[in-house]
Design a protein around this nucleic acid. Structure first.
Length: 113
DNA sequence: CTAATGACCATTA
DNA sequence: ATAATGGCCATTA
């Protein structure tokens, strides 16, 4: 575990339920506005996934992080349809609004912390 | 150590 | 409006 990853996890944990956030916003929050890509790399390897225990303090809601288009890009290192579906279900359950094209409604994207 | 990769983003065509 | 290009950063090979 390095400092950068720790920052990413900390920032991601701040995302409120029923909202989502972009990789870029997280990057900006941790002080590296250009590191959106690196943020994705960290979350991809996220050891504190929601499937590892939703009640844990160190849990990181990486499913609440999407790209700027509102797409779900990936879930637990998987980019297949099944993963997207699972992720989408989770978000809907938390109250996130989805468009007909399967993307997150822009209104639900939390850009500021 | 260097080179390639990716759950991104902003800028052009 | 969509499609392609370049840059960015940390991780991984």
């Amino acid at each position: 575990m390095n400092d950068f990853a720790e920052l990413v996890y900390t920032a991601t944990r701040k995302i409120p339920e029923g909202k989502v956030c972009t990789y870029g916003a997280v990057a900006k929050e941790i002080g590296n506005p250009k590191a959106a890509r690196a943020v994705g790399a960290v979350l991809k390897k996220n050891p504190y996934g929601i499937e590892s225990g939703c009640n844990s303090d160190q849990m990181v809601p990486c499913h609440r992080v999407v790209n700027m288009k509102g797409e779900l890009t990936g879930f637990f290192g998987k980019t297949d349809e099944a993963a997207f579906e699972r992720k989408r279900n989770l978000l809907e359950k938390e109250g996130v609004d989805f468009n007909t094209d399967g993307k997150v409604s822009q209104c639900c994207i939390h850009r500021k912390f």
